[in-house]
Amino acid sequence: MKSGTVKEDPGVNLARGILEKHQLMLEKPAVGRDLEKSQELLIPLLQDIQDAYGYLPPPVLEWVSKKTGIPISRMYGVITFYSQFYLEPKGKHTIRCCQGTACHVKGSQAIGEAIEEYLGVKDGDTTDDMQFTFESVQCLGTCFLAPVIMIDNDYYGEMTQGKVKKVLERYSKS
């Protein structure tokens, strides 16, 4: 049986302060045991950690798991359930390419491929220069613009392969 050993690296210090604000989490084992309650408390905690670090660094999560008694496996379940959480550092800009039904029909797959080619990364990954994170998503809620991509908070509709480069260039480092 192997158990992960987590060294308290300096990265944890930030989390220490955050955890203090979430005192309830430390009431183990009651919290560790109660699935619903732990989820309810866990989400705001995760948000705070993500705000501080920009993402959810796994060593920090393991440390939090040790402190709170919430199994790391369950945290992972919660984190992957919500698209707002990231386990890897994110690029400066997030590009979401819709692969919902409407967009799919209008050729969103080719758009996705064009973006991948332009950035040189796969779905879910971040460019080496930390400028872009690319991910495919289901319906962005603007089907009338299909095929749609979204960069940070801006929508770009009626995309074509040709438009990809032009749009992305606006966000590249100059």
Binding site: R74, Y76, G77
Partner: peptide, 19 residues
Amino acid sequence: ANAITLRERAGQVLVTTAF
């Protein structure tokens, strides 16, 4: 042992370990 969990949602839910 808390080794496994369900990950993601909707049509893609899977059993897996942390990370």
